[in-house]
Design a binder for these strands. Structure first.
Lengths: 343, 343
DNA sequence: TTGTAGGCGTTATCAA
DNA sequence: TTGATAACGCCTACAA
């Protein structure tokens, strides 16, 4: 019992009026009689009319689609950021189309292209781990596509963005470790070309410097953000004669890997080694000991990014200076880093 | 430096040919000279031409959008199911538009409507907790929209679907508890109008009956699928004079809540109480003791759902009998249910 | 208040 | 191989 396609013309024919009248009735135009409006609405419902947004958008030269490009949807941070975006975009009448890149630059470029070709009104994005330059993003904005970056951004790209204050968060986390009496604190980092990891490293360094603790290059480990890499690195560290006495990791996942590996090796956390992660993934509360980490205000960041984008879309006048918002993460102190506490 | 809109007409004008020729060149039509094709492609690139999918889809009466409607994207099961779908849909040239319902029927209906109005080729969906009937889904399929349901489905709706064999999984989990010597096994369930929870309950009952263990109504707890409700229920159970000796929960989250509450109350898991959850959420491996649970083949389920949908979309002939696929979950035995093991 | 006509960007059909 | 024309479904001046 498939419907034939029912368009405003079908309805018009049935009622012996023109398509324009139907269009006006359906779109709530005022220049139409109450009677006709009701009749049209009733008939449309009866006939199972579904407006064709593509035709409408084509004609109006404007749609209601906002694209979101992110590395992965199943990260605490990103899924909550999306929730924040929806809280803003849905009431404003926009729909979200979400593309996962799985950290692949190729997929990121593809996704952006698809959104452009589908005439999205704008794009909110966080770059993939692989992405080394912003040529594709620059091209999109040059072509008139409003873009807002969030969390993982490209530096020196003159674009609205919303980020965590990774520097401040990392600084605070490291300072906390120092206050707990840890001295030989190593850092697990991500890809250092990504602002996020660069800033976390800088925050770590600043806290160390302020406390007159040396940071040598063998204390910084690149590209350690997965559980597996955390486990492997911890194993490697175990074979060395001197273990660090604390780890500040840019990732909860690698912190988890290290925590488990050290624990299995009989090392006491936090007595022998203190550990702090980043992102407040749900599991951090459940590890034994529970993992100290930093909560990022993901929903706020999502909301802000969506607001900025909608501003860009709707006020077509160009603000010359791009907006830049920053949210300071909150340190969540749990057992894995509390050497001084008696409990 | 915003681009003017560049269309096939702009390109045609520049080259003193017609739009039809440009269209043919761009779309790889064979009836065109090599020379023209190259010239057009080169010019299009130079001018920054972006094909307008909306116009193309409108004209062709067909697009490449597949909608996905799910309760939440940040569940292990759903985010992995989406990954599975993408693995099938992307190579086939389709794009996914993902809508979260947050367990609200209203948002589910909205999302479906949006997809219909955007002329999605088809929809893959898993119903919200709130959804009590399939009228909106029936209406969509009656209107010619191909739909495949997965995981949480509506019974008695003649629609392709892909599900977990929740009955078998629950049966196996319960049997495992019984084999470990637990006898007074209670069940945490979800909303029983959802197939998923109904089947898990049935599997539990069957295993209990086979072992000649009574199941009375006070052993079954409805709507206990969040961590909070698991904690609250565990607290309540603690106040009663007789605790159950095991819990088979339909949800890892409520199992977690119970595990933590009991542990804090000084109850030994698995000696005093055995616990089994469902879904193999990542955290289940990390709880203390680690939580026995069931892995659902989420990526396979996603892939299968996508394959079924594409079949429906592309073979327009109606199979009269809807396909029904079922994947048996795998029991993952961890410490929380192993009373007999010495380790 | 309603109708007429034209076009949004693309592609299919027919003719040249 | 290319061009001319019409149409996908909708919206909006403009006219009546």
């Amino acid at each position: 019992m498939k419907n034939q396609k029912v368009t405003i013309h079908t309805i018009a024919a049935r009622l012996n009026i023109t398509a324009s009248t139907v269009s006006r009735a359906l779109s709530g135009n005022k220049r139409i009689s109450q009677k006709t409006r009701e009749l049209v609405n009733k008939t449309a419902a009866e006939m199972g009319y579904k407006p064709n947004h593509m035709a409408s958008n084509l004609r109006k030269g404007k749609g209601n689609l906002i694209g979101v490009i992110i590395p992965r949807i199943n990260r605490h941070f990103f899924s909550h950021a999306i929730a924040g975006m929806e809280a803003i975009t849905n009431p404003a009448g926009y729909n979200l189309m979400i593309c996962q890149t799985n950290e692949s630059q190729a997929k990121e470029i593809d996704g952006l292209q698809t959104l452009i070709n589908n005439r999205a009104e704008g794009v909110i994005m966080s770059i993939s781990n692989e992405t080394r330059n912003g040529a594709h993003i620059q091209a999109a904005t040059d072509g008139g596509m409003p873009v807002v970056l969030f969390d993982r951004i490209i530096k020196n790209l003159n674009i609205d963005h919303v980020i965590n204050d990774n520097f401040a968060g990392a600084y605070e986390a490291t300072k906390h470790l120092i206050e707990q009496g840890y001295k030989n604190i190593v850092h697990f980092s991500g890809s250092l070309h990504i602002n996020v990891y660069e800033q976390r490293l800088n925050g770590y360094k600043k806290a160390m410097n302020e406390a007159n603790l040396d940071v040598t290059s063998d204390m910084i480990f690149d590209n350690i953000i997965t559980r597996l890499s955390g486990e492997e690195l911890a194993q490697t560290l175990l074979t060395k004669n001197k273990l660090p006495d604390a780890i500040f990791s840019s990732s909860d996942y690698s912190a988890l890997g290290a925590l488990i590996t050290f624990k299995n090796a009989g090392i006491n956390i936090p007595q022998d080694i203190g550990i702090v992660g980043f992102a407040n993934e749900p599991f951090t509360e459940l590890t034994d000991p529970a993992l100290t980490t930093l909560e990022q205000y993901s929903e706020d960041i999502g909301r802000s990014a969506a607001r900025l984008l909608i501003e860009r879309i709707e006020n077509k006048q160009n603000k010359e200076v791009p907006s830049s918002l920053s949210f300071k993460p909150q340190l969540i102190i749990r057992k894995s880093s509390q050497r001084n506490t008696i409990d």
